[in-house]
Design a protein around this nucleic acid. Sequence first.
DNA 1: ACCTGAACACCGTTCAAGT
DNA 2: ACCTGAACACCGTTCAAGT
Lengths: 272, 272
Amino acid sequence: MATRTHRSQRRTDALSRERIVEAAVELLDTAGESGLTFRALTERLATGPGAIYWHVANKDELLAAATDAVVTAAVAVGSAAGAPRSESAGAGAGAGAGTPASPQDGVRAVALGLFDAIVRHPWLATQLAAQLSRNPWGTVTPRIFESIGQQVRALDVPESSWFTVTSALVHYVLGAAGQNAVNSSSARALPPGVDRAGFLDTVSTAWRELDPDDYPFTRAVADQMRGHDDRRQFLDGIDLVLAGITATHHRRPDDVGAQEDVQEDAQEDVQE
Amino acid sequence: MATRTHRSQRRTDALSRERIVEAAVELLDTAGESGLTFRALTERLATGPGAIYWHVANKDELLAAATDAVVTAAVAVGSAAGAPRSESAGAGAGAGAGTPASPQDGVRAVALGLFDAIVRHPWLATQLAAQLSRNPWGTVTPRIFESIGQQVRALDVPESSWFTVTSALVHYVLGAAGQNAVNSSSARALPPGVDRAGFLDTVSTAWRELDPDDYPFTRAVADQMRGHDDRRQFLDGIDLVLAGITATHHRRPDDVGAQEDVQEDAQEDVQE
DNA sequence: ACCTGAACACCGTTCAAGT
DNA sequence: ACCTGAACACCGTTCAAGT
């Protein structure tokens, strides 16, 4: 705080990449993805566009930095056993805070950290997809992969399957969290009277009105979807994957994880 | 085809919503997400912006329509046993075409249909995330849900768990397919000399150069990531979830799928 | 080194006017 | 009913100029 008694510096803090990213996240949270513009940003930071471009290369980089900042905070919450304070509010299914009781709980904790981050920052869902598919050599992918992978290491999975198992978990978490962002984001977009319960009602009703010939299954589960609890559902999915991991790796030790070869020999091998 | 012999109509086809969506998909495929602009569209369709706005409300609706069109084609390939022609090129793991040999193969076929669609249309990854999280009451969500759900129904899963199990599969597929879009999309963005093998090499190398203190796990699996086959990996994840479904639903008949209540201290009995 | 702010090219969208 | 195309408001980005 008072480390630098350099010059006067009593006015507002100097501009910095950190402050810009922070403002970007706030703008995304309050005004949505379309709310993040350089004009809104310059106004909020009381500066000009040129000043921002001095610290970040362009909007894509700014978006990447905002995503990275939020993801970093999210995985820090989930992973460490002795995290300073749980940003992840609310008690999870016994996996929210403290020392994980089992390796499985470790996975659940990290997954919930990401899940909650997306609920709090709905723009993360889209942004994560964009970031991960655009450049996996960026910082976001390794961060998520590492936080889940460290939990996987605690499971009794042979090292040769680490990559496959971790990837499967990461994919599930991102897919699930992405789709579930709907509850906070679109609840905000819906008329104020309608909250979560009403929202689920609306979707459930819409599903039941689908064409019986084309959508027999979706109509059949419309009721289940109305009553479901997102977090519960999310964790049930995690547990399904965990059960699959356990089942797969309790087999005979010579047949772990994957089959040897593919039936048809006609597959083009991409590596020439 | 020749149903309408109305008027002369020998010139170029009249503008229609269908033709507009088709042009949008082509533009997205060839020029990427940033390549889809109303100016590029008007040029391609030899018309003015007003003409397009007569058929579609705005760009969001156009994007949604493009996504829906591609998804519809993708699930049509995967689901039907006697599909006219498999748009999904290449042989899968015995689940590519023909009548599914098992309920599990049915799931794999539909999943691969979506996977391949995203590989062919990299913009689908981001767009799917945007569409699904923005409005799940749209047409895209039910379509995907239905196609996978119908396969789930063929598994020996009790009806009370249909929604949970289907959701888990859908989430995995979307998450995995989204991240794997990287191989076609960014390969296109990379210098022409570098293709898939070189791309994996680059990422693998980048992973190995990460900070050992912060990224021990990611560094440890860098080699596995270099050698991996996307489709194989995708199917292994599917199999993990399928194994979890089987394991979970082969328990005592009174404890299928989900626990009754959540307790603060209680941990799940997903089991050691 | 860091910031200002006018200017530019481009975008989605509108709308009076045509047929 | 369907289409034209000029016009508008707004956006990301640049850059000569300041300190």
